[in-house]
């Protein structure tokens, strides 16, 4: 194809997206669109899978049977969501095994927040309430993204996730209205998860590299700073309601803007964790790689068995 032809195709392609048409896997697409989508969708999938670990950490220790089944179901949903997203990636011609390889070798990234440790039961509440809350803000607009398989996966994810945040907030309500010890546990969890949750919505707009292109392709509908503001505005009243204090001395309602003003985020900490030096980066990766390696003989056995079964069937047919 000549350069001019490609340029022509690209213009038509952008026009389709601007008209709100969906792009499907077999449609022509610019190489950059394909690559950006593989990167974003796989990052999203990896985040779901790594995100199972900090919460999985408390399944065996959940304080009641009711909490245990809710947590199990939630962590299981995350496996499902990872699966939907890996499948969406695979429509672009990359296999799940290749994507795992990228994760296991550190080539692919996942959400940094999962590199923080879950040290008390209240962290299950804080993660559901804050981390899932921040994730939903990011995800709901993606139900309308331009790439069909991604949009469809996100619709399913958002539908299923509707209970996740409630699950977390309910844990926090119970703790905040419980004994002084329980309330302290809840406040401590909020103190530890608040700032990482704000960081989770991404670097400030000034430092964000992909935003403009992603906006055009509807991979992103709002800037990181706007999303962060939205998250703060909706979460602070929820903290007030249950009598917990957001750990930010500079947090103040601004009548003029109609938003909360908030303090400085420690971006050095953010970049430290992104670059692999957070409190649990190594543990998380060891857990994922370990599960994959320990599972290898199992996956091989299933394949070998399937082939044997097929051969026997073929022989019978002759």
């Amino acid at each position: 194809m000549s350069e001019e032809q490609i340029k022509n195709l690209e213009e038509q392609f952008e026009a389709r997206i601007a008209r709100d048409e969906k792009i499907e896997p077999k449609d022509w697409m610019p190489e950059k669109y394909r690559k950006t989508h593989i990167r974003q969708m796989s990052q999203h999938a990896h985040s779901e899978i790594v995100g199972m670990l900090p919460e999985g950490n408390w399944i065996t220790r959940a304080p009641s049977l009711r909490r245990k089944v809710a947590l199990l179901a939630k962590v299981q949903d995350e496996a499902g969501h990872g699966l939907y997203l890996y499948s969406a990636c695979e429509t672009l011609g990359i296999s799940r095994d290749e994507l795992y390889e990228q994760l296991h070798t550190g080539k692919a990234k996942y959400s940094s927040i999962f590199n923080y440790p879950t040290v008390t039961w209240a962290d299950m509440g804080a993660i559901g309430w804050l981390v899932d809350g921040a994730a939903i803000i990011n995800q709901v607009p993606l139900c309308n993204t331009s790439f069909g398989p991604y949009a469809r996966a996100m619709i399913r994810v958002c539908k299923e996730e509707s209970f996740h945040q409630r699950q977390g907030y309910e844990i926090m309500i119970k703790l905040a209205s419980g004994t002084p010890e329980q309330k302290e546990m809840a406040q401590d969890a909020l103190n530890r998860w608040w700032w990482p949750s704000l960081m989770m919505l991404g670097p400030t707009d000034a430092e964000s590299i992909h935003t403009e292109q992603s906006m055009k392709w509807k991979l992103k509908r709002k800037s990181n700073d706007d999303l962060r503001q939205q998250f703060i505005d909706q979460t602070v009243p929820q903290a007030d309601l249950i009598g917990l204090t957001v750990p930010d001395a500079n947090l103040k309602w601004n009548e003029e803007t109609g938003h909360y003003d908030f303090g400085e985020i420690d971006w050095d900490e953010f970049w430290q964790v992104v670059k692999g030096h957070g409190p649990c980066n190594k543990e998380r990766m060891n857990a994922r790689v370990g599960a994959w390696e320990r599972g290898e003989w199992v996956r091989d056995a299933a394949m070998a068995h399937a082939e044997k079964k097929q051969n026997r069937k073929d022989k019978q047919a002759v």
Binding site: K68, Q76, L83, G290, A291, G295, V298
Partner: peptide
């Protein structure tokens, strides 16, 4: 069985 959640040999098996 719950101990295995997140550590299964494949995503499908984990679920």
């Amino acid at each position: 069985m719950g101990e295995l959640c997140g550590h299964g040999p494949s995503l499908e098996t984990d679920i």
